[in-house]
Nucleic acid binder design. Structure first.
Lengths: 173, 173
DNA sequence: CCGCATTAGTTGTCATGACAACTAAGTCGT
DNA sequence: ACGACTTAGTTGTCATGACAACTAATGCGG
């Protein structure tokens, strides 16, 4: 009723589509990984971050920020992954408060089994859709948005520039 | 271990950031709306679609596709919104299988109360972050991705071009 | 070196989303 | 006009995420 017309037509379009993508993309990723290897996309992310971490190990807090998650969320997932034998937790010697998480050999195996299908899904649903030039635009736009969503730059993707520094790293997707 | 290097560095960066946005954005939207008006972002979307529908009414199936949701999901949410008095459901006279959902006066009131804060959040977290030109790039990129995620174009945002056709409509954000 | 604030994690509760199973109404072929 | 098929929607079950409350270890000021 109030006459305020908050978004311009162009803004409304872009916003509606971004919302749709944020809704559909996670669902699709979860569905594919669940179907193929009984893993959540978030679990996959956790494992893949660990796989490319020094000594296959990361502290819970750091792992949480690397995966854009809250600590409680990660803690629950770590327990489940541990029960499945894909991950091991052990106390950090230096700081007895802290917990280290390490991916097991079995975890690596599952990851290797999962990777091809996951990569194919990402390609066919996202990367292949982009016209030349749109990849860099997407990187720039998401960086802008993340700088607002995560001002402290605590979370992984914002630091993702760091990943660019080591292009030879055995980066799992 | 397998040497396949599935994503290029640029791809990995863009992808990681898109994943981060898809993770953080819905959480942030839910948090703001929940705090301010005890509404999920999805509930807000449902109400706002209804508010700009003819006769404030839409059929469940259509409403589901307009909000990028599955029918079961919408059904649950509709029941909750009905319990809160923000929405009314009644059988469609023409097709007795179908159910119409209409937003109530109270629903409109809540929506009006919610809109300013929501719009401000969207602006400050997303739209304001974009450099000139990036808005259109974002619209184009998300359109491309949606054409893969939702090939049939069943869901709202893909049809969002239709929204462009009626720029004077009392579109709620 | 003692107490208070801070940091690291874990656990419990509750709401929400996906999926499957089900009911009911319309449609189509013969 | 009758039985099979399809469409519309609802409901139940289960897993997952957010948030709050809790425990435990560290660090800092006096």
């Amino acid at each position: 009723m109030t006459a305020t017309q908050p978004f311009s037509s162009a803004e409304a379009t872009a916003w509606a589509r971004l919302v749709a993508v944020s809704e559909l993309l996670p669902t699709m990723l979860d569905a594919q990984l669940q179907r193929d290897v009984e893993l959540t996309h978030f679990e996959y992310l956790v494992l893949s971050v660990l796989a490319s971490s020094p000594d296959r190990t990361s502290r819970m807090t750091r792992l949480a920020s690397q995966t854009n998650a809250t600590l409680p969320r990660l803690s629950h997932v770590a327990r489940r992954l541990e029960e499945k034998g894909l991950l091991a937790r052990f106390p950090c010697p230096q700081d007895k408060r802290a917990t280290n998480a390490r991916i097991t050999d079995e975890g690596l195996a599952v990851l290797d089994r999962a990777a091809p299908g996951h990569v194919a899904t990402v390609r066919s649903n996202v990367l292949d859709a982009l016209a030349p030039g749109e990849l860099d635009q997407l990187a720039a736009i998401t960086a802008s948005i993340l700088s607002k969503l995560d001002p402290e730059g605590r979370l992984s993707a914002t630091q993702c520039d760091a990943a660019k520094d080591r292009p030879e790293a055995s980066a799992r997707p």
